[in-house]
């Protein structure tokens, strides 16, 4: 069963076509990794899937149901989608625990005690239990992003969207965030993630898609796309990543 199907998606901003006839399938419990330069359309694709941006053509299906239908209740759709942003976007006026339990309590109508218990269980699992009552500005970037990930999975989404979740982090903090993503992957969480971390992409990806100018130029297992790319554009991109010391 496919969690996500994107068919012939197009999205433009003004005259600029950011996503151009892109199709993508994500089977359940798998991770699809999007790689490519900034501006290749990775973030826009994720925002379109989460209905934060309105698409210009094509269709998107979540669990077989078309979510790109304008009649659809977007709040219902988003109950099944988790999204993590590059800049964390924690709510600064709420404690870590309140950040995590806001949606379970308000949207999913879970009781306050149950939501808190569940949140504490996850916080403990990822060594953040002592931060539960802290406010986000007291946490390091890595801790903030881990909390943001926990917040996004607290509603038990069908699919997790991760948008360059380590790009705003100090290099030494990257790994603590990636390890939580790896754990979620082994839990069987289906995910689509955009990243510049090729080593990490190789570890978690069931499929790697190389995007250029809003389309997927090359796709396949990491062993092919990252280790033995076929297309000239993919080779060129990976060469430049390598030169920048990021491979």
């Amino acid at each position: 069963m496919n969690v996500l199907e994107v068919k012939n998606l197009r999205k433009s901003f003004e005259d600029h076509l950011v996503i151009n006839d892109l199709s993508l399938t994500v089977p359940d419990h798998t991770a699809t990794v999007l790689i490519g330069s900034s501006g290749s359309g990775k973030s826009t694709l994720l925002r379109c899937i989460n209905l934060l941006d309105t698409i210009d053509d094509g269709s998107i299906y979540l669990d077989g149901k078309e979510i790109s239908d304008p009649e659809i209740n977007v709040d219902e759709v988003r109950k099944n989608l988790g999204m993590v942003f590059q800049s964390f976007n924690l709510f600064p006026h709420m404690s870590v625990l309140d950040n995590i339990t806001l949606s379970p309590i308000r949207v999913h109508k879970v009781s306050k005690t149950q939501a808190r218990d569940e949140a504490m269980t996850v916080l403990r699992r990822f060594d953040l239990a002592d931060k539960a009552d802290q406010f986000p500005d007291r946490l390091s970037g890595g801790q903030q992003q881990r909390v943001a990930i926990i917040r996004s999975i607290a509603v038990k989404p069908r699919l997790l969207l991760l948008d360059e979740v380590t790009s705003a982090l100090d290099p030494v903090l990257v790994n603590e965030v990636l390890s939580i993503v790896r754990d979620l992957k082994s839990d069987g969480m289906a995910m689509v993630l955009a990243t510049h971390e090729m080593g990490f992409a190789t570890q978690v990806a069931d499929e790697v898609c190389f995007l250029k100018d809003g389309n997927i130029v090359e796709r396949g297992p990491a062993s092919q796309v990252i280790s033995a790319p076929q297309q000239a554009e993919t080779k060129d991109f990976l060469r430049r990543v390598h030169e920048a010391g990021r491979l």
Binding site: N50, L52, V74, D75, R78, K79, L81, G82, M83, F85, N89, L90, F91, L102, S103, R106, V107, H108, R151, S152, V155
Partner: peptide, 8 residues
């Protein structure tokens, strides 16, 4: 965006 993506 963060709040809406959580389903609020």
């Amino acid at each position: 965006a963060a709040a809406r993506s959580l389903g609020l």
